[in-house]
């Protein structure tokens, strides 16, 4: 009996310690096109009449880390998250961090790391059924962007960017570093306008394998992630 009470107290104590220490840290991502959120379906319908529309937008984010004064203070265990325009919920990522953690910088990777790329079949977000795995040549597609543009000379004016590659010299995994205020919720914008301002859709409208152009494109993507003010 006495033992039971003791265990009960211990359980309570450990529970309360945990409750005090950990908080949810939410990352809200939002894709912008024509300076408007693509997560709102009405906007997407309205864009159908525009010169430039996006139909598919899917990408992997991984290895979330928090830094304070240049030193790492937090990193995630679970690795890859698939964000998909077709699944608005996937754009919110919740991490559990210690409540009193001080940090001033958020780091994460755009894409799937090379070790995961060579480790065989994976489940959940990394399951090849998600259409983010190249079949004719092993490797994850880190970032997929498809749509139409009147300036694109391809069939049906369709552009297709499948950005990936984990082997030298065509690595496309990019680390994104953003200065942040230590809030429990951080909103990050993926500004597609930044990308389309720099890509010449009349010439470079199709990337479907690891290559020099996919590496260049991945560097461009890095610039498109900004903290929402």
């Amino acid at each position: 009996m006495r033992n039971n009470i003791l265990i009960g107290i211990l359980l309570l104590a450990s529970g309360s310690i945990r409750a005090q220490e950990d908080i949810l840290f939410e990352l809200h991502f939002e894709p912008l096109l024509h300076n408007t959120s693509l997560l709102v379906e009405n906007n997407r319908e309205e864009f159908a009449s525009y010169d430039l529309t996006v139909e598919t937008l899917k990408f992997y984010l991984s290895s979330f880390e928090l830094y304070n004064d240049g030193k790492p203070v937090f990193s995630t265990i679970q690795n890859c998250y698939l964000l998909d325009l077709a699944d608005p919920d996937s754009w919110k990522i919740s991490l559990t961090i210690p409540e009193k953690l001080s940090f001033d910088q958020l780091n994460f990777q755009l894409g799937v790391d090379s070790l995961t790329n060579v480790s065989g079949a994976m489940g959940d977000d990394l399951d090849p059924v998600n259409g983010m795995y190249w079949t004719w040549q092993s490797g994850y597609i880190n970032f997929k962007l498809e749509g139409t543009a009147t300036t694109c000379p391809a069939r049906n004016n369709r552009f297709q960017y499948h950005i990936g590659g984990y082997q030298a010299p065509f690595e496309s995994l990019q680390t994104i570093q953003l200065p942040v205020n230590p809030n429990s919720k951080i909103s990050i914008t993926l500004n597609l306008d930044t990308i389309f301002n720099e890509v010449n859709l009349s010439e470079n409208y199709k990337i479907m394998s690891p290559s020099e152009s996919s590496t260049i494109f991945s560097k461009l993507l890095k610039k498109a992630f900004v903290i929402k003010r």
């Binding site: 790329n117 060579v118 480790s119 065989g120 079949a121 090849p128 795995y133 079949t135 092993s138």
Partner: peptide, 16 residues
Amino acid sequence: GAINHLDMQALAPISS
């Protein structure tokens, strides 16, 4: 040598 792991090999003939 396009495929880097036995698990992923079947994807190639399935989708070819």
